[in-house]
Computed example of a mutant assay.
Amino acid sequence: MTVLEGAKVRLRRVSSEDAEARFALGTDAEIVNMFGVSLSDAKPMTRDAVEQWAEGQANSPYAWAIEVEGCLVGEIKLHSINVHDRRASMAIGKYDRTRLGKGVGTEAIRLLLRHAFTELKLHRIGIRVLAYNERAIRAYTKCGFIIEGRERETAFVDGSWQDDLMMGLLSTEYLT
């Protein structure tokens, strides 16, 4: 697996040692709320859950740990890859509250996009995001993603229905 290096972010393969770091980051209710988990449903992180997470990520050829200053702060991955159509979906999760709003996610996304479009020769990257996740939408837009549509009432979060936005970026848009 390719290690992707940026100015302050390093994307690398997830290892079994990351389970302990992921456990230490715990479950931040406001962060998991951005993933569509109701605040009342946010559960404490368990050792079993982080071991399963580390194993699953380590076995994926397109999943990277997001590392800053030698510390695990999140993950980013490509999934639902269609080789024939040269497209994939992207997912990112940051778990360290102290790293929010500091450009870490934006840099990680840019590193992944460069790899996806130049090395993997993909043509399209898509992403779904809850419409209320404004921080993520700003980062995706900054990286060139365009809102392509809205899927109404896809998630029931904190007692109300929420919409998903579908965003996409084409290699022709990225490489120009």
Rank of each mutant, 00 (worst) to 15 (best):
R110S: 07
M45C: 12
L111E: 04
N133E: 08
H79D: 14
T98A: 11
L113I: 07
I66G: 03
S160P: 00
R47Y: 05
A108L: 03
K142P: 01
S89T: 06
I66R: 06
M45T: 13
T141R: 15
A49K: 10
I137E: 10
L112M: 09
E75M: 09
N59Y: 04
R128V: 07
W64P: 00
Y140F: 14
N133K: 10
E107C: 09
G144D: 09
K121I: 07
I92C: 12
E51W: 10
P61S: 03
H79N: 15
G144C: 13
R128D: 12
V129Q: 11
E75L: 07
M45A: 10
V73Y: 14
R97V: 11
F117T: 03
S89V: 07
A131S: 12
G70Q: 11
R124Y: 03
V129D: 05
L100F: 10
D85E: 13
A49W: 12
T141I: 15
R87T: 05
T98S: 13
G74Q: 11
E153G: 00
V104E: 05
Y62I: 04
R86D: 05
L130E: 04
M45P: 07
L120D: 08
F145E: 05
L100C: 10
L72A: 02
R99M: 09
G56P: 08
G101S: 12
L112G: 04
I66S: 07
E148V: 00
K43T: 15
K77E: 01
L100K: 08
K43V: 15
G126A: 03
C143P: 08
R135N: 08
T106V: 06
E119Y: 07
T46L: 08
D158H: 03
Q162S: 06
P61N: 02
A155D: 10
G56S: 15
V129W: 03
R86Y: 13
E134W: 02
R138A: 13
F145P: 02
G103M: 05
K94Q: 15
T106E: 10
T98K: 13
D85Y: 09
A88P: 04
L111K: 06
L113T: 08
S60Y: 02
A116M: 01
A65K: 01
S60W: 01
A108D: 02
